[in-house]
Every structure is written in structure tokens, then in C-alpha cells.
């Protein structure tokens, strides 16, 4: 990945963050914190890694993406819209009663959404199923999934991890958006899942740890995961909840609260400044 490409990805991720803020502000509800922490991974996946065709969302040979932490739909919707799956203008209707962009993504209504999610712990199982289907059909597609760190408190996640290694699903690449915060506070205070790396490894997965805001590290981790011969891979991405908006960073309160007008203006100003800087390069 050269500097030009990195610059493009930086622009996309900043635009996605801008969409997240606007969507949640317009909806007066939604989940900015985890959307912002996952935005860079989403950017690299949709603009550098995944084999998808916005003109043919149901393409059989496409790579799949399952947002197991479905409440971070603003990040996914923004990536899909920027990729061309549906008009960017639709994002302003996020969570509105007449919009197909529900708070949690529906595969029935949103082009490019591969699985309806929202109830935590279920998406990773669906991704396991897609990876099994890929093996059955001898397809070369990859299934990507994104889990929240709070989400892995769900027992079903561990059932899914067990099944993925049992069936040697090396076509399954999952990300753990490890931003350390859930609604009620720090995950180690609410219900510690530690030691996460050891546990996931013990469930038979390859584990790669990265900085989830470093495009090169994200891309290299995917490249590394694709070399796996017989194991699924979990990329544990250290991230910052609320990343990219100064006053939202590392604050659990921004898990599920919308910004007010003043906060929205400040967030957009900060992101626009980043974009202006990138244009100058």
C-alpha cells in the first residue's frame, strides 16, 4: 500500500466518520462510539480488501461481511453508501420511520448487508454458516465478521468460535473491535472477558493483534489471515471508542447517545479540518 492509497483510505474513513456523526445527529439516536472505533477497519475492508460488486449485491462469489455488533450500523451504512450500494443521501434518513436504514441492519432491505444483525452474539454464528456454505460449494470467497468486545460476553460467541475451528474454517476472518468500553462502562468492570487473546487461541483460532486505526496493520493482518491453512482468524484490533472526534474518545457515554447541535458542529468541524489537511497533501 503506497502513500497515495493510504491517503485515499484516510479520506474515506474521515468521510465515513462524518456520515456517522450526521446520521446519528439527524436520527437523534444511534451509536456513535463503536461506529467511530470500527470505521477504519470498515474502510480498509470495503475499499481495499473485499471482493464486492455494488451493482450486484447478491453476487454468489462475493466476499461476505457480517456486522455482528449490529448497533454500529452507521459505520456500515456509510461504507456501503460510499461504495455505491445505495445513494449517500439515504444516510440522512437513518433510523427514520420511512427509511430502510433501521437502527440495526436488515439484509432484506439494505443492499450490501449480508446478514440481519442487532441481537448480539448471533452474527458470528451466521458468519460461521456462510463459511461452511463457501466450503461446501468450493467457493473462494472470504467471510468477514466484526464483533464488539462487550459482545463476546454472549455465550453464543464461544459456541460459534468452537464450531469455526472444529470445521477448520480458514475462510472466516473476524475482527474484534477492542475499544474496552460498553454501555455500562469499562468491560473489565462490567464483566471481564480477559484474557481474551488466550481464550480465543484456546478455542482453536489464529489470533493477530493490531492497532485498529492503522490501515497498513489492518491490511497486513487480512493478508496474514488469508494464509491460514486450517484455522479461522481473529484479528484483535485495539481501538479507541469515539475515535476521530476529540470529545467522544474513550467515553462510554458516547456508546448510544446522539450529539446535540453544538456537539455535532464541533465534530463536523474537526473532521472537516482533517479532510482539508488530506486534500492539501
Amino acid at each position: 500500500m503506497d502513500e497515495k492509497r493510504l491517503n485515499e483510505l484516510r479520506k474515506y474513513s474521515t468521510i465515513i466518520r462524518r456520515h456517522i456523526i450526521e446520521a446519528v445527529y439527524n436520527a437523534k439516536s444511534g451509536h456513535p462510539g463503536g461506529s467511530l472505533s470500527s470505521a477504519d477497519i470498515m474502510t480498509v475492508l470495503y475499499f481495499n480488501e473485499m471482493r464486492v460488486d455494488p451493482k450486484n449485491p447478491a453476487w454468489e462469489d462475493r466476499d461476505r461481511f457480517v456486522l455482528s455488533k449490529g448497533h454500529c450500523s452507521p459505520a456500515l451504512y456509510a461504507a456501503l453508501a460510499e461504495k455505491g450500494f445505495f445513494p449517500v443521501e439515504e444516510l440522512s434518513k437513518f433510523r427514520h420511520i420511512d427509511s430502510f436504514l433501521e437502527g440495526h441492519p436488515s439484509m432484506r432491505y439494505v443492499p450490501g448487508v449480508d446478514m440481519s444483525t442487532g441481537s448480539l452474539g448471533q452474527g458470528i454464528s451466521a458468519a460461521v454458516g456462510m463459511a461452511i456454505a463457501g466450503k461446501l460449494d468450493k467457493k473462494d470467497y472470504y467471510v468477514y465478521a466484526m464483533l464488539g468486545d462487550g459482545e463476546i460476553q454472549e455465550g453464543q460467541v464461544w459456541e460459534a468460535l468452537m464450531a469455526a475451528s472444529h470445521y477448520k474454517l480458514n475462510n472466516l476472518i473476524a475482527f474484534l473491535d477492542y475499544n474496552h468500553l460498553q454501555i455500562d462502562g469499562n468491560i473489565t468492570e462490567v464483566m471481564s472477558p480477559e484474557p481474551v487473546i488466550d481464550k480465543i487461541r484456546a478455542f482453536g483460532w489464529n489470533v493477530i493483534t493490531i492497532d485498529g486505526h492503522d490501515f497498513m496493520q489492518i491490511s497486513n493482518a487480512v493478508c496474514e489471515a488469508k494464509k491460514s491453512k486450517d484455522k479461522p482468524t481473529m484479528i484483535i484490533a485495539e481501538t479507541i471508542k469515539g475515535k476521530g472526534v476529540s470529545f467522544m474518545e474513550n467515553k462510554a457515554d458516547w456508546h448510544g447517545s446522539p450529539p446535540n447541535k453544538e456537539q455535532r458542529d464541533q465534530a463536523i468541524a474537526e473532521l472537516d479540518a482533517i479532510l482539508a489537511g488530506l486534500e492539501g497533501e
Binding site: S125, G129, A133, A163
Partner: peptide, 16 residues
């Protein structure tokens, strides 16, 4: 692990 089975079944079904 019935919870995983049902959601994995959904994933397989989504692939036709």
C-alpha cells in the same frame, strides 16, 4: 450448542 446451530443455519441458508 443450539443457539449457534440456528444462527449458523441462517448463514448457510443465506448462501442459497
Amino acid at each position: 450448542a443450539e443457539a449457534n446451530m440456528m444462527a449458523a443455519a441462517a448463514g448457510i441458508a443465506s448462501c442459497g
